[in-house]
Each structure stands twice: as structure tokens, then as C-alpha cells.
Design a protein around this nucleic acid. Structure first.
Length: 553
DNA sequence: TTTAGGG
DNA sequence: CCCTAAA
């Protein structure tokens, strides 16, 4: 029914070496017995099945059991992964000498073997029985690759074996070595961000963390939790569900998107490494939907991949999700920031809590904001987490999606800069009435919470900078003249300049029209500044503004 | 990433 | 001050 959509040569050897540790969880393929042929292997023992690793791994070095359709697809897949294959070869070569595990080696020695004996496979599985459990947390694509290419990695190596070698090997595999590095580097963050990782298909990233000498980290627990429920129904219905996936779903409570997510995880694994890496690096604003961006649309024609990702496990109902059906929905584009904002506002009002406002959302996305006020971010994170329950009000699909997004985003953020609530933010008290009230109040102003008055000196500096570097060199001006004031971004400078232009023109007008009204100006600009602005305006045309100004006059 | 322009 | 498109 389901088969491995990837070129066999590519996967086979890796799988063998892989020992079916991580893979089952990753690309678990459920096969009804009738679909099994001698060439199909069940590397999983009962024990493992019971332990919810019971995902059937279909292995066949020669060719995986395929349906015509799948066959067709294979061509496609081959093409897709041609590059990887190539790289793999290199990796294997470089790695081979280091392989210690004889059994594995043996298998490797005959990568082309048409069929691997079940016994052998099982042997492998049993051999690593204990270790398997230790590795169960490995979840996604990265995990897969890593495990795959670490050769016959032992649990031992798994613990401490992450090293240059692997990196090097992976280098050939993954487009970006740094990514790998990042993953490894992320070790310490494993637990905190696990949810996040899983939720957004970063499960693979977590693997690096899981490798760590951690005793019983969250990840493991999480896996364990989701284990029993997840397996019960899935073993026989050709459903492959990675534990990580199930966890993700459960935690995210995103029923509709569960499949999509799972799928996303996989796809992301192969196709959006870079993107994801970036997200993780930022570790602030990764949205699950980012993975659903247009690029992925081209994947839609890959039924195998999707099919093998069928996720049967649904959080509450355990209802099976139909691939075809939910798929469409999933492909929806990520809501625009504006949408999110509006939605959240609405929701806030609806909840009377008003805790989540545009700031939350905006903050999530706005890099500048992050830079400017960590405290705020952290507050956001807290708020997000604390109010998750509220968020889960039944409000329709959108409702579901949104919380998910927030959570996903919020979590990583939270973990990243859990800077002491060092300041201002009124919102820090997430649950207190005060916080809400303030929030509400601030809702009015929405975006303008960070307002900072421009002082005369600042304006002067700005004008100086503009006169020196010219209009439009905002980054330069910022860097050179406003380096000390972090809250002034180049954009702020530009905005200020715009306002100055407007102001200067207005003042002109006012002067001409009604002299008195000028006193109305809240913060009248010093004449010298006005003069300078005016001069600069002449010298450095600022198209639109100038045009407007003319018009205004 | 930065800038321009609109809100 | 925010957001987005364009470069």
C-alpha cells in the first residue's frame, strides 16, 4: 500500500545501517500482511510494536514493494534525489572505514543485495533492542539522515558519537553543514524547545538534542506518552505515524493539520532545510506554516510521500484523517500577518482577556521588535503559554490554526530569551486583571506601543546625518549617528525624516496661513531645524514627500 | 537586507 | 510605528 517513495538504492543501505531505529518512526510504513512479500521485511519486533514503534518498515534493497503508481513516482523521486544519492555515495565512502559494527558492515558490504533476510533484519532490530528504545526519540528527517549516515551507529556512538565525522558525512548529504552544526549546537535547548520543534516539523532537529546524555528529557517522556494511544490502531492499517508526529499533533491540538504537519515534517526535511535552519536559528518566529509556503506546492504531485505520511492518530478522537480530504485545506497559505493580528484582536475581545494583541503577533515576526525589546518578547511568550487554554475555544478552523501558530512561535521565543522580565511591559502579568486591562487599553494603539519621542538633539542628529550622507542612507545614518540608540531603526529614521518634511511644509503653510496656529504645534520644531529640513528637502528630493508637499502647498 | 511607500 | 513590496 505504501512504500518508500525514495530511490531504493539511496535508502536501502542507509536503512540497513540505520537499524531501523529512527526510521520506523520517521517513515513508518504500515503494511497489511497481504502486501508483504518475502522481500518485505518487518524489522520490528513485537516488543517494539507494543512500544508503539510498531511501524512497519519496508525494506528491500532491490526494490520496494510498489504499486504501478508508486513505480511511476519512483522515477520522479529518483530525479529528486539524484543529487542526494550522489552525495550519499561519497559519504558512504568516507564513512565506511570507520564502521565498527560488523553486522552492519556486512550488510553494507552487500548493499545491492536483492533481499535481506528477515532474520538478519530482525537480528539487527533485536540486537539493538535496548538501544532502540533509547533512540526512539529520534524523530524526523534529520534524524533519519543522521542515523543513516552515521553508519552502524550504536547507541554508544549515539550518545557521544556526534562529531565531526558525522558532520562531515552529512556535509555531503545536507546542503548546509552549518545547519547540522546548528542542530548539534542546539543540544542544550532540546527539552525546552521540543514542543516547538516537533510542532513545526523540527523534530528532526531535536534528534541532536535527544542524542545528548540526557536522562529522561521531555522529549522522551512526550514520546512515551503518545506511544500507546498512537499505536493501538495504526499497526495494521497501513498507517505510518512517527511518534514525534503524534506528539506534535497532540500538543498542538491541531486536528486538521496533523497530516499536513507530518507531511510537512518530512518534506521539510528534504526540501526546506535551509529555511528551517533559518527559523531555528532565529528560534523565534518559525511558523509551521512557513513550511507550507509555495515551494511546497510542487510537492503536491508526490502522492507517495504524502500517502506515507498518513496520520491516523488524532489527538482526541483518534479519528483517521483522510489524506486527500484534509490535504487541500492544509495547503492554504499561511494567514497574513494582518489577518493574524486581526484575528487575535478579535479573539482577545472575545475572550475579554485581550491578552493577545497585535503586539504578540507582531512581536513574533518583527525582527526589529525582537531586537529592541527582549523583555517584551519574553512577556509575549509567557502570555502565550499561559493563555493557551483560552485560545482553544471552538471558533472554527481558523481558530484552531491560529493558536497553533502562536504556540509554535511563542514557545521557541520563550525559550530563547527568557530574559528576566526586566522591564516595562505591563503585559508581563499575563493572567492578572491588570495585564488584561492594560492590554485592552493598549489595543487601541495597537502598534504604537514603542513610541519614543524624538528629542531635538535626535532630530538634529538625524538632519546632520541626512545632510552628510544623503537621504535614503538610513542604515548608514543609523549606524554612524544612532548607534547608541538601539530603539531607532533605520526605518524609524526614515519615518522621522518623512515627518520632518511634512512638518516643515506644514509649518510653512501654517506660517503663511495662520500664524497663531503654529503655537498649536505640540512640539514645535526649532526654527533652525525647520530651516535645515527645508533646505535638505530641496537638496535631496524625496519624491513622494516632495510631491505631496508641493501639492499640499 | 534595505528602502520606499502606504496605513 | 507597522507592514509590505520591491530591489
Amino acid at each position: 500500500m505504501f512504500s518508500f517513495p525514495f530511490p531504493t538504492p539511496f535508502f536501502c543501505a542507509p536503512l540497513i545501517r540505520f537499524r531501523f531505529l529512527a526510521l520506523p518512526r520517521l517513515f513508518a510504513f504500515g503494511h497489511s500482511p497481504e502486501f508483504l512479500s518475502p522481500r518485505v521485511l518487518y524489522p520490528l519486533s513485537d516488543r517494539r510494536v507494543r512500544s508503539s514503534l510498531g511501524l512497519f518498515l519496508l525494506i528491500d534493497s532491490g526494490s520496494i514493494l510498489k504499486t504501478p503508481h508508486e513505480m511511476d513516482n519512483e522515477a520522479h523521486s529518483r530525479k529528486k534525489f539524484a543529487n542526494m544519492k550522489h552525495q550519499r555515495v561519497k559519504a558512504e565512502e568516507s564513512f565506511a572505514p570507520t564502521i565498527e559494527d560488523e553486522a552492519i558492515q556486512h550488510l553494507l558490504a552487500e548493499p545491492k543485495i536483492d533481499s535481506v533476510s528477515v532474520d538478519g533484519m530482525l537480528h539487527l532490530g533485536q540486537e539493538n533492542g535496548v538501544k532502540c528504545s533509547g533512540l526512539e526519540d529520534f524523530s524526523c528527517g534529520y534524524e533519519f539522515f543522521f542515523n543513516t549516515y552515521r553508519g552502524g551507529l550504536d547507541s554508544n556512538t549515539a550518545q557521544g558519537g556526534e562529531d565531526e565525522l558525522e558532520l562531515g558525512v552529512l556535509d555531503g548529504l545536507l546542503d548546509e553543514v552549518e545547519e547540522v552544526g546548528d542542530l548539534h549546537a542546539a543540544d542544550g535547548l532540546a527539552s525546552p524547545c521540543e514542543d516547538f520543534l516537533l510542532e513545526f516539523g523540527f523534530a528532526g532537529k531535536a534528534f541532536g538534542l535527544d542524542y545528548g546524555p540526557r536522562g529522561g528529557s521531555h522529549s522522551r517522556n512526550a514520546s512515551a506518552e503518545s506511544r500507546s494511544p498512537g499505536l493501538s490502531g495504526s499497526s495494521n492499517s497501513a498507517v505510518g505515524l512517527s511518534e514525534s508526529s503524534s506528539v506534535t499533533i497532540q500538543e498542538s491540538e491541531c486536528k486538521n493539520d496533523s497530516l499536513k504537519k507530518t507531511e510537512t515534517e518530512l518534506r521539510g526535511t528534504f526540501r526546506h532545510k535551509k529555511k528551517r535552519k533559518t527559523q531555528v536559528k532565529g528560534s523565534m518566529c518559525p511558523a509551521s506554516h512557513d513550511l507550507q509556503t509555495p515551494n511546497q506546492l510542487d510537492d503536491d504531485d508526490d502522492p507517495l510521500l504524502s500517502s506515507m505520511l498518513v496520520n491516523k492518530h488524532e489527538k482526541k478522537s483518534g479519528e483517521a484523517i483522510k489524506v486527500g480530504g484534509s490535504r487541500r485545506e492544509k495547503r492554504l497559505r499561511r494567514p497574513t500577518q494582518r489577518y493574524i493580528e486581526e484575528f487575535s484582536d478579535k479573539k482577545s475581545k472575545h475572550l475579554k482577556g485581550g491578552k493577545f494583541t497585535s503586539v504578540d503577533v507582531a512581536g513574533i515576526k518583527d525582527r526589529r521588535l525582537k531586537v529592541r525589546s527582549h523583555a517584551e518578547l519574553s512577556s509575549i511568550g509567557v502570555g502565550t503559554l499561559s493563555s493557551v487554554p483560552e485560545e482553544e475555544l471552538p471558533n472554527g478552523n481558523k481558530t484552531q490554526v491560529l493558536p497553533e501558530i502562536r504556540r509554535g512561535r511563542g514557545r521557541p521565543k520563550k525559550q530563547a530569551p527568557i530574559v528576566p522580565p526586566k522591564l516595562n511591559e505591563e503585559l508581563l502579568t499575563s493572567d492578572s486583571d491588570e495585564g488584561r486591562v492594560i492590554r485592552k487599553r493598549s489595543d487601541k494603539h495597537d502598534r504604537r506601543k514603542h513610541q519614543r519621542m524624538w528629542t531635538i538633539s535626535e532630530v538634529t542628529k538625524l538632519v546632520d546625518g541626512i545632510s552628510e550622507y544623503g537621504v535614503g542612507r538610513w542604515t548608514d545614518i543609523k549606524r554612524l549617528l544612532f548607534a547608541s540608540s538601539a530603539y531607532r531603526t533605520p526605518i524609524d529614521l526614515r519615518d522621522k525624516w518623512r515627518n520632518l518634511l511634512r512638518a516643515s511644509s506644514l509649518q510653512k503653510i501654517k506660517k503663511r496661513e495662520v500664524e497663531d496656529k503654529q503655537s498649536h504645534a505640540l512640539r514645535p520644531l526649532p526654527k533652525f531645524l525647520i530651516r535645515r529640513v527645508r533646505e535638505l528637502a530641496k537638496i535631496h528630493p524625496y519624491p513622494r514627500e516632495r510631491g505631496q508637499k508641493r501639492i499640499g502647498q
